[in-house]
């Protein structure tokens, strides 16, 4: 059951997200022998070495073999294991897509795929390692559940919640420190978005690192007397249709914000619901169909338009369209 408490003051997490990932794996494995950790030569990067030390019989570094790892994960799951298979986002999806689609998806395996360094957070690894398309690819897999946790509490809660479910899950996770959004003990449901801030003029729908930016944008807009609702749509699939439809109906304008290509991303998923349920103007903040490039995160955020200011500008555009009666 969802039970969410946002933090009063959003500050940087003290722990990196990868620590939350490994700690949660250790937590789950302490009582659940089904957990198996797989990686394709990035255990040191995601911090699961500690897990390997504690459970050497349940952790496997397969080497640089993403395709093989996805098949092994599916095979393990058929014997009753619940594998968590990690590599960087582009390799977890684009590199091994047919294996993920068929061996994990079509085969109805019970697998959790962890794709790290979403979008611009791939920073200094540059364009080859910068997934603006991972969620877009994964959205095409029937029945797959896709989440992008905003902070450590949300990641940990979702990993634990997934243990009671069966199927293919894709977790899009940061490795480094992110901004804390939720208090310890918060619980989340797959397919249910979180209403973080009430508002009536428009709704900002975001996920991952863009949730904090969405809240910041709402604070800026508030100074201008604009009342923005903010929703954390951490679950891209299944998307929370009710929450999106309510946003369209009650606020009449939507801005989406994602660290991903706007094509086949969160904005697309939201727009699909809006046109089907209650057509209103939508503006999509995100990567405008471009490849990644190397650089520090702050530079990349500006370069690709992933800042609170970009969301504020989109909000003004969408409000003008709303007033103009043009959708």
């Amino acid at each position: 059951m969802m039970s969410v408490k946002p933090v009063a003051e959003r500050v940087k997490e003290t722990a990196e997200m990868r620590k939350a990932f490994c700690d949660t794996l250790l937590d789950i494995a302490a009582t659940d022998r089904r957990v198996v950790v797989l990686d394709a030569d990035l255990m040191s990067s995601i911090g699961t070495v500690k897990f390997m030390e504690k459970y050497p019989d349940r952790a496997f570094d397969v080497g640089v073999q993403e395709a093989n790892m996805m098949g092994i994960a599916a095979g393990l799951s058929v014997t009753g294991k619940i594998p968590f298979a990690h590599t960087f986002g582009p390799f977890a999806t684009r590199r091994a897509f047919d294996q993920v689609f068929l061996s994990c998806g079509y085969n109805r395996a019970n697998v959790r795929i962890m794709g790290s360094d979403p979008g611009v957070t791939a920073a200094f690894n540059g364009g080859t390692h910068m997934p603006f398309e991972d969620m877009g690819l994964m959205r095409n897999i029937p029945e797959a559940i896709l989440v992008e946790p905003a902070d450590n509490v949300q990641l940990s809660a979702l990993m634990k919640a997934s243990m009671d479910r069966y199927g293919l899950f894709y977790f899009r996770i940061s490795r480094k420190q992110v901004i804390k959004i939720y208090e310890e003990g918060s619980q989340f449901d797959f397919g249910r978005a979180v209403l973080l801030r009430e508002g009536r003029d428009l709704t900002i729908i975001a996920s991952g690192i863009m949730v904090d930016d969405g809240l910041k944008a709402a604070e800026i807009l508030a100074q201008e007397g604009i009342n923005a609702r903010v929703v954390d749509s951490f679950c891209w699939k299944p998307i929370d249709r009710e929450m999106v439809a309510a946003a369209a109906r009650e606020t009449g304008a939507i801005v989406t914000a994602e660290n991903h290509n706007v094509i086949n991303g969160l904005g697309s998923a939201v727009a699909e619901v809006v046109v089907e349920e209650c057509p209103v103007p939508v503006e999509r903040v995100g990567v405008q169909d471009r490849f990644g490039q190397v650089g520090p995160v702050d530079f990349l955020r500006r370069e690709y338009g992933l800042t609170p200011d970009n969301i504020v500008a989109a909000a003004r555009r969408v409000l003008a369209r709303k007033r103009g009666g043009c959708c």
């Binding site: 496997f60 395709a67 092994i72 095979g75 393990l76 294991k81 047919d98």
Partner: peptide, 15 residues
């Protein structure tokens, strides 16, 4: 793909 799937099953049984 069956090769990796078989390896996964074999590994699961070994565990």
């Amino acid at each position: 793909q069956g090769s990796s799937l078989a390896v996964g099953v074999a590994l699961g049984l070994k565990i």
